[in-house]
Each structure stands twice: as C-alpha cells, then as structure tokens.
C-alpha cells in the first residue's frame, strides 16, 4: 500500500514524468542518430563509405542507448526524484504527515526506495524497447548468436538497475543530512566530481609506475556504479562486490540516521 502511494506521487511529479520522457527519447534518438550517421551523404573514411564501415544491429543500438541513458542524465533524474521524495518532503514537512501513521521509519524508507526502483525499471524498459525495436527495423538483428547477444544486453540493463539502486541509496542517505532537494543534487554532483578527480589521480599514479595505485580503484564511488559497463568490456565481479558494499553501507547509514532523527 505504501509503495503504491509512493508510486502515485512519483508518477504525478515533474521529475518522475521527465525521467520517463527522457528515457523514451534516449532509446528512440540513439537509434535515429546512428542511422543518420550511417547514412550521411558522401561521408567516407579512406575511400570507404561510413555505411560500410559502421555495421550495427538492434542489440548494439540497445547497448548504445544504455550508454547514453547512463551518461549522467537518467541517474541524475533518479537522484533528483529520490531527493525530492526524502529531502523535499522533509523540508516541506509532508514527510511528517506520513510518520504520524502507524508505520516504522524503516518501512517508509523502503517504500520510497522501492517506488524509485520501479521508476528505474520502467525507464530502463522505455529505453530498451524503442531502441531495440527501432534498431531491428533500421539495422536488423545480429547475424549470429542472436539469443546470446540479446541476453548479454539484457544483463547490461539488469546491471544498470543495480547501479541505479546504488545512485538511489546514495541520494537517500544524503537527503537525510541535507534537507533540500537541490542541495542533494549539488552534493551528489560534487561527490561525483571528487570521485572523478580521485580516479584520474590513481590513473596518473599507475602511469608513472605506482602499480599498487590500481588496488585503490575498487574504493572509488563509481567503480561499482559502472558495473553495467561489463557487457561490452567484460564483466568484473569486483565491481559488483563494490556496488553491494556501497548499497549496504549507504542504506545502513540512512536507516540509522532516520530512526534517530527528529522530524519537525
């Protein structure tokens, strides 16, 4: 019941609707953009036309669409949605109205996470289905191992859902410390910036011969959140371990914080 109530709020709110629209557009526009590139008139490399060089199929289009989806845009919509669901409701005091009901605080957080998780699944489907359908229409299915290829890209979308849960749990935890939806988004982006700087630093250390720097990579924030990329680069179990640790840690902190928090 609580999850249904949260879904009702999510799908009538601007950030929820925007996430659905963007997810749908990502799938369709990716297929259209690749088609456009492939059919650019007169475009050639070393005398070979682009259409001959760029050979894609529906599975690859679905994979490209996932890359576009996960490049900052959709995760940020999800972060914004979770921030407005927790930090926003704390600041406008609508969360107070839920907490006077006979429910535990843990179950309130669970309902919000579940609703946002469902939003994530729907956005993934909205990206996958049109991307794959348009891809099949414009470029056809893979020439060989069709089912294996499809399963592979489906696994990528599944891993992407887990990564979304990671983003959502980070946003939920930050929301309980910064009671402003905008502040949460800024905080997450700032954290992401720091993480990128750390990764660049570790990469530089590796390049100058400090090979042990590579051992620190699993401790960066985005190491686990990028686990979905394994579909093209090869799955790394370490990334999923890192993502699981991130999920457990953030949810534990969120629960402990929320249980002890005074809600005005």
């Amino acid at each position: 019941m609580m999850v249904v109530a949260e879904l009702r709020k999510t799908f009538t709110k601007g950030s929820g609707i925007a996430a659905l629209v963007v997810a749908l557009l990502v799938g369709m526009l990716t297929a259209a953009a690749v088609y456009q590139v492939q059919h650019m008139e007169g475009a050639s490399i070393n005398g070979t036309s682009v259409s001959e060089l760029v050979t894609v199929d529906a599975v690859q289009i679905a994979g490209y669409a996932l890359r576009v989806r996960n490049f900052f845009v959709l995760p940020m919509f999800l972060v914004l949605g979770m921030a407005s669901s927790v930090a926003g409701e704390l600041s406008d005091r609508t969360l107070r109205e839920l907490l006077v009901r006979p429910v535990s605080r843990g179950s309130v957080l669970f309902a919000k996470l579940t609703a946002s998780g469902i939003l994530s699944v729907i956005t993934l489907v909205l990206t996958l289905v049109p991307a794959f359908a348009l891809g099949a229409l414009l470029f056809g299915l893979p020439k060989e191992e069709v089912s294996t290829q499809i399963l592979k890209v489906l696994a990528a979308y599944g891993a992407s859902f887990l990564a979304d849960l990671g983003w959502l749990s980070i946003a939920m935890t930050v929301s309980l410390f910064i009671h402003s939806a905008g502040g949460v988004v800024v905080g997450v982006v700032f954290g992401l910036g720091l993480d990128m700087a750390l990764r660049a630093f570790l990469w530089a250390l590796e390049k100058i011969g400090a090979e042990k720097a590579a051992m620190l990579r699993p401790f960066t924030l985005t190491y686990g959140l990028d686990a979905w990329q394994g579909w093209s680069e090869g799955w790394e179990p370490g990334r999923f371990v890192s993502l699981t640790v991130l999920l457990v840690a953030t949810l534990t902190v969120a629960l402990a914080r929320f249980r002890r928090m005074d809600v005005l």
Binding site: A5, K9, L98, V108
Partner: peptide, 9 residues
Amino acid sequence: LEVACAYAG
C-alpha cells in the same frame, strides 16, 4: 487523503 490511508494501511 488516499495517500494518508495507504500509509495507515
């Protein structure tokens, strides 16, 4: 009110 009801079970 329906949201409140859902939270009250």
